[in-house]
Design a protein around this nucleic acid. Structure first.
Length: 322
DNA sequence: ATGGTTTTTACTGCGTC
DNA sequence: GACGCGGTAAAAACCAT
């Protein structure tokens, strides 16, 4: 069992998501379009042909509170000033005397103190910026390897920034936190990457990333709804060269089964894998359990177990379809 | 720390190509 | 015989208490 929050309802989506939906209707009136969130292709489920490639209209950041919205809008002047001037770093002596050794007046002392305080803050800012720049480098490389969308990248950056502002990176490897941020961001945006997949491209173990991910959730007070198994379907089907019709079928299977309680507590990738297996069978495009398990990131055994459950619930028998 | 649930690992038998 | 599939037992992983 991976994540057993049980939250079947979809988060309501932003304005721009609606734009995509209306686009779907325009192209295919029966609504049977599948959006492949890996390639960004729209696929007609009846013919399986790629209808169009679309770009992601969504903002690459999300705001949960008005303050955040304010903070993340990039129009207008920068709210967190970046210090270019190294000369600004000249430290102000902690002795309350001026250059000639004379004691400062109370007024000037106050000002000096204020300046020191501001300077400390600025120094902090700079160290954060420097670390962030390094992290963004790593993040860029990783998301390149993982084919991540801009939105996910941006969100991951935001998450990392908040993590570092909380001082969470100290004592942890940057790579680890970056990986966790990416994992978190990809889940938030409904394009989940699997832990193993991320771990494969880093020097971090899956466990480390998972631990770090949990920490991020806790420290930043973030809440992520459980992964929708259907989100995995396009990835799996695509990797096996299966068409849109099979994807649609698999998603249908998941949706009909969703309410029956079989899904809770189970690895969503396993369920998606089994659904694709059945869907492929139904369409006479058999793929072996081994193949599916491999691309889904689960074991054959898990595929089998989910398959068995699905088959009994759906009353599915292989002989029925040829 | 402990227990309960789930996945993984490893191994076996059976049927088919 | 190799391969796909189904099953099982024991280990490992995960979450909650």
């Amino acid at each position: 069992m991976y994540f057993n929050e049980d939250n079947p309802e979809k988060e309501n989506l932003g304005e721009s998501e609606k734009k995509i939906e209306s686009l779907e209707e325009k192209i295919c009136p029966d609504g049977s379009i599948i959006y492949d969130n890996v390639t960004g292709e729209m696929i007609c489920s009846s013919t399986g042909e790629v209808v169009s490639r679309i770009i992601d209209y969504r903002q690459e950041w999300r705001a949960f509170t008005p303050e955040e919205r304010e903070k993340r809008s990039r129009t207008g002047g920068p709210l967190t000033p970046v210090m270019h001037d190294q000369g600004f770093m000249t430290s102000i002596d902690y002795v309350d005397r001026d250059a000639s050794g004379k004691k400062l007046s109370p007024r000037r002392r106050y000002e000096a103190r204020k300046l020191r305080k501001y300077q400390a803050k600025a120094r902090m800012q700079i160290s954060i910026e420097r670390n962030l720049a390094l992290a963004i480098d790593e993040l860029e490389k990783l998301s390149e390897a993982l084919n991540l969308s801009k939105a996910v990248k941006q969100r991951a950056t935001e998450i990392y920034r908040r993590a570092i502002e909380k001082g969470m990176v100290r004592g942890r490897s940057t790579e680890n936190v970056v990986a966790a941020a990416i994992y978190l961001a990809s889940r938030e945006l409904g394009v989940p990457r699997m832990l193993d997949e991320i771990a494969k491209h880093t020097n971090c173990s899956r466990k480390d990333i998972a631990r770090c991910y949990r920490l991020l959730l806790r420290e930043l007070n973030l809440k992520v709804s459980s992964v929708d198994p259907a989100d995995f379907v396009p990835r799996i089907a695509h990797a096996l060269g299966l068409g849109g019709a099979v994807m649609k079928e698999a998603i249908d299977i998941i949706n009909t089964v969703r309410s029956l309680g079989i899904t809770s507590g189970k690895d969503p990738a396993g369920l998606a894998a089994a659904a694709v297996y059945i869907a492929a069978l139904k369409h006479g495009e058999r793929r072996t359990q081994k193949e599916i398990a491999q691309v889904a990131g689960v074991t054959e055994v898990t595929v089998r177990n989910r398959y068995r459950e699905l088959a009994t619930v759906l009353g599915f028998r292989e002989e029925e379809v040829v």
